[in-house]
Simulated scan of single mutants.
Amino acid sequence: MTHHNDSSHVGVDLRSSAPLIEARRITRRDAQRGQVLLQPTNFALHAGQRVVLTGPSGSGKSVFLRALALLDPLDGGMLHWHGQPIASARIPHYRRHIAYVRQRPALIDGTVEDNLRYPFSLAAYRDAAFDAARVRALFDAAGRGTGFLARETSELSGGEAQIVALVRVLQLDPEALLLDEPTASLDPESAREVETLITQWFEHERAARATVWVSHDPAQAQRVGERHITMRAGALDEPAATHATMGALR
């Protein structure tokens, strides 16, 4: 499958200094209770960054990630992608490049290969085709060899299911992964396999890719991120020194 790393989809030069994603005072509220879930939030994610987001349960980390992925409607503010606001008609295209990965993967019945072919049946991917060689290389990186494509998803362990879900996303060449505690329910060995797969994907084209990883594990946070942000009560808290350092690196 051809990797599309040009900027034609947004009409800007990816080599510019514009953030990959920029949130400008985005907010989310609980429509039923009126509770503020995400305070007006500014956030910029540049290509080449690995961000780790930590914080107590219920502090709004998943709400923030889903807002960045435009999976839930914003109640205020705006997202920009490569310096351009995202029109409603472009949201499916945006989600193709900014991929949200949930803690517990949702797989369809059938084989691993059935799950990997599924995205190409959707309109958003009609210009792409399933690439078996690419998929095999991704599975090799995760320590899953010949025969794995034929496995039934009902027989997979939690770690194997998460690897399938990740490969299903990675084969589509996203620009950024928004990872919502993808290893929280996995054993340590499976968690490291997932980390390895994501790290290899990131390093393959580091200058054009980024990750935001929610984690409750301090040791994992040190392994998978260089920019550390904490969320408390729906508000981001980033040490000024960290933010300044990341700005100097860009």
Rank of each mutant, 00 (worst) to 15 (best):
D72S: 06
F202E: 10
S16W: 05
H204V: 05
L249H: 04
A123G: 03
A142N: 11
A142Y: 06
G110N: 07
R136M: 08
V214E: 02
R209D: 07
Q35S: 05
P92F: 11
T54P: 00
G48E: 11
R250T: 14
L172H: 02
V135K: 03
D13T: 06
L249T: 06
A240Y: 01
L156A: 02
D237P: 03
A89V: 13
L179K: 04
W201F: 15
R24W: 03
L107E: 06
E189Q: 15
A87R: 12
E189G: 09
V112Y: 03
H228T: 05
Y100F: 15
F64M: 15
I21K: 04
N5Q: 14
M231I: 14
P218A: 00
A137F: 00
L177R: 14
A221D: 01
R206C: 00
R25T: 08
G58L: 05
E205K: 12
R144A: 12
S57T: 14
R192K: 14
V167F: 05
V135Y: 05
P105D: 01
D180E: 14
L149I: 08
E155Y: 06
G158L: 10
H97V: 04
D30I: 04
I21H: 00
P73K: 10
I91K: 11
L71Y: 09
R126S: 13
F64S: 07
V12P: 00
L79A: 09
A67P: 02
I91H: 04
Q222C: 04
V10N: 03
E22H: 05
D127P: 00
V63S: 14
H97S: 11
L166G: 00
T54R: 08
V169K: 08
P188G: 12
F43A: 13
I98A: 02
D75M: 05
A67M: 01
N115Q: 10
W81H: 13
S154W: 05
L170H: 06
G77M: 07
E160I: 03
F120P: 12
L236D: 08
A184L: 14
A184H: 10
R134N: 04
A240L: 11
P85N: 07
Y118S: 14
H46M: 14
A124K: 10
R117D: 01
E226C: 07
D173A: 15
H4E: 13
T230L: 11
V164D: 03
I108Q: 08
H82D: 09
A69L: 08
T2P: 08
D140F: 00
A69H: 09
R90A: 15
V164P: 02
L186P: 06
T27R: 12
N115T: 11
L149T: 06
M1I: 13
V10Q: 06
T111C: 06
P56F: 03
L179E: 02
V224W: 06
W201I: 15
I21A: 04
N5L: 10
R136S: 13
E152N: 13
I163W: 02
A137D: 14
L172V: 09
E195L: 10
A23M: 13
